[in-house]
Every structure is written in structure tokens, then in C-alpha cells.
Amino acid sequence: MATDNNPKKRKTVGRKPKSDPAVYRYGIKLNAEENGKFELLFLRSGLSQRAKFIKTMIFGREIKVVKLDKAAMDYYVRLTNFYHQFQAIGNNYNQTVKAIKSNFSDKRALALLYKLEKITMELVVLSKQIIALTREFEEKHLHRNP
């Protein structure tokens, strides 16, 4: 049984004491408008505890707020997938031209290449439309605040 007379012996139960415990406490009161602003900033910070958020704000540590726009992410993913499909079309295009040149007579190859050229022009127009839509989307939805 540990006695209070012997300071070298410590109780072995309970939590270990912190080397620098936070013992100073401050209280503030906010009105409804201020509390609304506080809660909004707290939610944007992504921190789990209000006390850590307040300490961060007081001592000037930088808080980074990251907003994820689901629509922008979906658009980006689909555009990336479309770009990979476009690359595959280019690869298939090169293979098709080589196959046409090697397997058909010059007259037949020219006719097939003419059809391929028409489809390629349609792809170029589609590509330009995609670029225009992407720029429009970036201007409307992804404008960055400096």
C-alpha cells in the first residue's frame, strides 16, 4: 500500500501525468451571428475539436480549407477517360492506315483513306467542342480566388 509520506513511490493506476498540462481556461460568449460564423469556420477547417480550432486561430497557424466539388471531380474523371479513349483512337488510326496501305491496291486504299479522313474531320470538330466546353466549365465553376 502506497503512502503519501514517501514521495518516491507513485501510484501505478490511472493516467500518466502530462509534462506540461493545459490548466488555464478561458471563456467567451458569442451572439447568434458570431456563433454562426464560428461554426461555419470550424466546419470548413476540418478539425475535430473546437478547442484545437480556437488555438489554431489564436496563434496564427495557417488553416487550409479544401473544398471538393463533386461535379468538377466527375467532369475531370470523365474528361480523363475520354482523353484515353481519344488516344486509343489515334493508335487504332495509325494501325488502320498501315493495314490499308499494305493490304489493298492504291485505288482501293485511296477510297478507304478518304472515308477515314471524313471521320477524322468529325473527330477534330468533336475535339474542338470538348476543348471549348472544358474552358467554359473552368471559367464558370473552377475560378480560383487569389
Rank of each mutant, 00 (worst) to 15 (best):
R78F: 05
L41C: 14
I89G: 01
A99Y: 02
L112W: 00
Y114H: 13
Q95C: 03
S19M: 15
S45V: 07
K98F: 03
R44L: 03
M73N: 11
L68V: 15
N103A: 03
N92G: 12
N92L: 09
M121E: 08
Y24M: 11
N6F: 08
Q87E: 14
A109E: 00
I28Y: 00
R78N: 09
I131V: 04
L112E: 11
I130L: 07
R44S: 04
S105I: 03
M57Y: 02
G27R: 10
V13M: 14
Y26D: 03
I131H: 11
H84I: 06
K16D: 08
R135D: 15
T120S: 14
A2R: 15
D106L: 09
L123C: 13
R61D: 02
F53P: 00
I89E: 06
R44A: 05
L40D: 02
T120H: 07
A88Y: 10
G27E: 05
E33H: 12
M57N: 06
I58N: 00
F53D: 02
I100L: 07
L40E: 10
D4C: 07
Q87W: 11
E34I: 05
L110S: 12
N5R: 15
M1D: 15
D20P: 01
K118H: 13
K115Q: 08
L133T: 11
N145S: 14
N35V: 07
R50F: 01
D4M: 14
F59S: 03
L126T: 15
T80N: 08
A71Q: 13
G14T: 05
V125W: 07
R78E: 04
Y76K: 12
T134C: 05
F86T: 13
A109P: 02
K16S: 13
L30R: 03
G60D: 07
N145V: 14
G14E: 08
G14C: 02
M73S: 10
F86A: 11
R61L: 05
L116C: 01
A72F: 10
K67N: 12
Y93P: 00
D74S: 07
M1W: 06
R78I: 03
P17Y: 09
K29D: 01
F82M: 10
F42H: 13
T96W: 01
R50V: 15
L41N: 15
E136T: 05
V77S: 02
A71F: 09
K70H: 12
N35T: 02
V65H: 07
E122Y: 01
I63V: 05
I28A: 06
R144W: 10
V124E: 14
K140Q: 11
G36C: 04
Y75S: 00
K8G: 08
I119C: 03
H141I: 06
V77D: 10
F104N: 00
L43W: 04
L113T: 05
D74E: 10
L126F: 10
S48C: 08
V65N: 04
A51I: 02
A71I: 14
A2I: 15
K140C: 04
V13N: 11
G90R: 06
E122F: 00
K37P: 01
Y83V: 04
I28G: 00
M73W: 03
G46S: 07
A22Y: 09
L133F: 04
E34N: 04
L142S: 12
K52S: 15
K101Q: 05
E62M: 08
L40F: 09
A71L: 14
Y26R: 11
Y114R: 14
V66P: 08
I58L: 06
M73L: 14
V125F: 03
N103S: 01
